[in-house]
Every structure is written in structure tokens, then in C-alpha cells.
Amino acid sequence: MSAVCVGSADELKEAGRKVFDLEGTEIGVFHHEGAFYAWHNNCPHQGGPVCQGRLFRLVEEEVEANRETRGRRYHESRVNIVCPWHGIEYDVKTGQFPGNPAMALTPAKVYVENGEVFLDV
């Protein structure tokens, strides 16, 4: 396994997300709420370039105590990576599809040393 430096932590924080091709292995690095997360750019659905998709906050539905619904709203902090091929959403922190945690992205190891972000490939 090799450690690959993919840039400075400040730069990646600023960008929020960057996707890299590391000699055929594609990995997306995400910064969210003070931490880095890295996922292989390969959607478990049909192999789409999931990390290159747009980021959307999780949509949830408000239900009152009497079970009446009050419509949809965006979650305050939970963000999903949306695969651009068919729109499947994965939590940026856990890599899981909200409707079935068994459907999840493959993690890559990411860490910061001396202000630089490294991926183990």
C-alpha cells in the first residue's frame, strides 16, 4: 500500500470535495464538518462515477405527533453525495444510502499529516 499526498488540507477544506485518479484508482476526498472522508469513485449500483456527482443536503419529511405530514425539508447538516448516473444518494460521512445502510460506498483511508492530506492506495 502506498500513501499519496493529494494536496494541502487548507486547499481541500476550501474546495469541499476533490476527486483524483491515482493510476487507475479513482478516489473522492470530501471535507464536511471539520473532518475528511474518502470514498472510491465507483457506485455500487452500476459502477457510476459517484464522487463526481453533486452534493445535496438530505431531504427529510416532517411528521407531527398526530402523524400528519408537514411536507419535505432539507436536513440542517447531513449531506449526501449524489451519483450522477442515476441519482442514488450516499451520506458523505458514512457512505451509506439512507434507505438501506447495506448499500454503501467503499471507503478509502484518508488522513492529515503536517497540513497535507494523504490517501492510502
Binding site: A3, D21, E26
Partner: peptide, 21 residues
């Protein structure tokens, strides 16, 4: 390096663009 079995690789990561319209 936080894993002793990991060696530092010098390959240049190639950035890939976000997909948009």
C-alpha cells in the same frame, strides 16, 4: 505515515472534474 507497511508514493494525483450539464 500511520501505518508502517505504507510507503510514500510520489505519483501525481490527476484531478477529475465534477459532472455537470
Amino acid at each position: 505515515m500511520n501505518d508502517p507497511a505504507t510507503s510514500l508514493h510520489t505519483l501525481a494525483p490527476k484531478p477529475i472534474r465534477e459532472i455537470d450539464t
